[in-house]
Nucleic acid binder design. Structure first.
Lengths: 122, 122
DNA sequence: CTGTATCCGATAAGATACTG
DNA sequence: CAGTATCTTATCGGATACAG
């Protein structure tokens, strides 16, 4: 899962253009990666171990989970700390204040989609 | 741009699983398609013709614009009407009440991203 | 003017094997 | 336990040509 973008592609240039124009595009770009919001919500609910997350979101694969955690950490939405108690896993994940703020906004969006997206299912 | 998904792929099945689990995933899936939010915002501001949208969002290509308009219409976020005045274009696009609601939520998200996403740019 | 059809390159997702 | 590396397939975005 190494991400090398061809920086000369129109595809890449367009995405860069959009992200510079409005940071919303950058945010959506993170959230739209599959499983991202699920990982965020799981961590919000206190699920703080890699293996435990993997178990809860059981269709996700290792590399994708690792990738999402890294991405969320990069954007300072979650934080990873070492757990030296020794009994359980080595690392813990939890939301940062920014992460909480975002999850609140996502809750609102979720309510919106729950009430309005159904019309397309009939 | 015909979208035929291989309904047996794990990729497809996972996406379906996520969308059924929470409609938020479906909403994000629409919004994350490139140019979608830009089209939405342009229409919100009164830009109501295909050619005019094409001109404003000048890096978008015809087929992608057409595709986004169709998608937004399917989800009842915008509406398309025939304009019989004869002088200008044939069709007009405008937001539905649901579309307005969504654009308000996106404005909030936008404010969030403007204040918090910069930390990653340094 | 408002699109549609087709082809192809770029990126994302998943499977699998492996590591400190 | 918590990942990384590599490979394959699926999907998306863009270019171009064309049509009602």
């Amino acid at each position: 899962m190494i991400e090398e973008r061809k920086i000369t592609s129109t595809n890449y240039l367009n995405q860069t253009y959009l992200e510079e124009k409005c940071t919303l595009n950058e945010l959506i770009n993170i959230l739209s990666k599959r499983w991202t919001t699920d990982v965020l919500f799981e961590i919000e609910e206190g699920n703080d171990r890699f293996s435990s997350l993997k178990k809860s979101i059981d269709l996700i694969s290792d590399n994708v989970l690792a990738n999402r955690l890294k991405l969320l950490e990069q954007y300072k939405l979650i934080k990873k700390t070492k757990d030296d108690s020794g009994t359980t896993g080595k690392y813990q994940y939890f939301l940062t204040p920014i992460g909480y703020k975002l999850s609140e906004l996502l809750d609102q969006l979720c309510q919106f989609s729950d009430s309005h997206m159904n019309s397309n299912f009939t």
